[in-house]
Design a binder for these strands. Sequence first.
DNA 1: TTGTAGGCGTTATCAA
DNA 2: TTGATAACGCCTACAA
Lengths: 336, 336
Amino acid sequence: MDSINIKKLAKALNLSTSTISRAFRDNSDINGDTKERILAKAKELNYQPNHYASNLREQKSKTIAVIVPELANNYFSQAIHGIERVARENGYHILIYVTDDDYQKEVTFIRHLHNGRADGIIMSVSGEANDHNYLNKFGSKRLPLVFFDRIYEDIDTPRVITNDYDSSFLATEHLIEQGCKRIAYLVVNKSLSIGKTRMQGYIDALAKYRIPFEESLIVDCSNSYEENSLIIKEALTQLKPDGIFTSVERLAFATYYACYDLNINIPKDLKVISFSSLEIAPLLNPSLTTITQPAIEIGEEAAKLLFTVLDDQANKNRPNEVVLTSKIIKRNSTGK
Amino acid sequence: MDSINIKKLAKALNLSTSTISRAFRDNSDINGDTKERILAKAKELNYQPNHYASNLREQKSKTIAVIVPELANNYFSQAIHGIERVARENGYHILIYVTDDDYQKEVTFIRHLHNGRADGIIMSVSGEANDHNYLNKFGSKRLPLVFFDRIYEDIDTPRVITNDYDSSFLATEHLIEQGCKRIAYLVVNKSLSIGKTRMQGYIDALAKYRIPFEESLIVDCSNSYEENSLIIKEALTQLKPDGIFTSVERLAFATYYACYDLNINIPKDLKVISFSSLEIAPLLNPSLTTITQPAIEIGEEAAKLLFTVLDDQANKNRPNEVVLTSKIIKRNSTGK
DNA sequence: TTGTAGGCGTTATCAA
DNA sequence: TTGATAACGCCTACAA
């Protein structure tokens, strides 16, 4: 074995391992010269304290795990970017787990992470329709956990969310002001809290303008591109809406494709607004009116919140909920 | 300390720690009943072998590190998705590092990773203009490393790339066939190998059609959105190209924005083709002709290649280079 | 088939 | 200021 470790470095310098160790720690009593000598030699030999040994000894990993439903999505990649930045600044590393919206994977990941691999978890959940109680099974041993965006309301843990209700209300209102009378709401799973909250804004905005709520205009979509394509085309031809509000970005894309195929003109025949973090929304044909969530900032806030908890296990004086504000950006897809 | 470990589990079951350990390993001699009893109790008590202790003992981490220049980019998030999938299937976890195209960060990450934290590295490089030799400093202790997309040609390590030269040649040829006579090539850093390879295809295609190569039509862009906007607008007004070929996705977006501002009609006044993995290229205004790299597959191949190396340190019978094929998808931005 | 014991590389405690 | 030593939790060679 030719790899370098603290013992070899100690021998090379005629010092003890404890002295070497001290050179790498800040608060230790150590002679300045000795420290420099050690660090110089360490650099020369490419020595770095073994991470696993340190972790084992110190019982922490300086690592946080990020669990997301999907990656090929502007929102989540931006959020991860934000998390990565804050983590890095704090000397932490991030592990990425993608559930593909599979509840079982989420459970497996979370269980697994409780083996000391991570000090904390940031998660956007996948299993709202399932049993969340598995998170309580860990009791006091549960890792610090922060939710963002998609959360379990019945689990008591800090969370970063956006003002979805308000945004949905305003989005619906915007469509109404632009002349829409039959507005369909496209959602991936309406029983999920994020779908529900966003839907409530839609319902209440309709009420404000005394537009009767029609159950059939709530279109429940799936995670499959092909299925959604069929569902949306059928909705467009059967329900004949003049406005569409989609709760997630990819349903807006699917709507665009469907309209291209069906020769429906956006915005003349149909106005479209969507939750989306797509940076090139202005380049779409037509440019897409969006409710834009501050994705990077959400990631940053989630990471900061987690670090607050990590720094401060005892003291519970930390916010339990951070609410960020989304912006409606009006573009041509809802023009007159 | 209320946390569970192998000793407590052993005591709870009146067994020795070695027996417990064996229950979690596949190839060990252990009584079937005992094993079941142990696993059941482990589940009950939420016990999992401590990852850091195992790693320390076994000298491997079952973790691979992925280093990319940026995350908010369809290409890289798709590639990571592919890597994640293959890693997961092999029981590996992935750590993500984003360099923001900063060479120094790359060096720091790589150095750091050599402390045992990861068993291997998959990287798309950031520092082609800099000194790559730092990678050789590790000698035989260097972690198994696989490059994808952006590589250092002078470092001997397996790589996954696409047929960039051919694609560029065909892309340029396509523009010529569509009637372009003055084709500008937009690149982020033309001294980088990926820029160079792609540029050579462009140059050779021009030559085939006896179109004189003009140095000024190579437009060197930056990483800043604002700067690029200025550079591209100036190029459009000064050079008056009738075709633009961009070596990376975001330069195509910048070109679109510039054309909107300058009232240049794509494709009538200017035809645009770009390397891009954007799934919604058909939804752009106008729909964008792309050279689409198989990003997810690239990630998968890179991961597979790394696992080949990990499984097979001694035997050098593994491919050193995997070349995947990109597809040109013709859309309206290069229409007549 | 199960148990005992030593060591993976580090750091904290204590003594020098 | 430095050194010796024990311990973090696990795995494996060896013994029983």
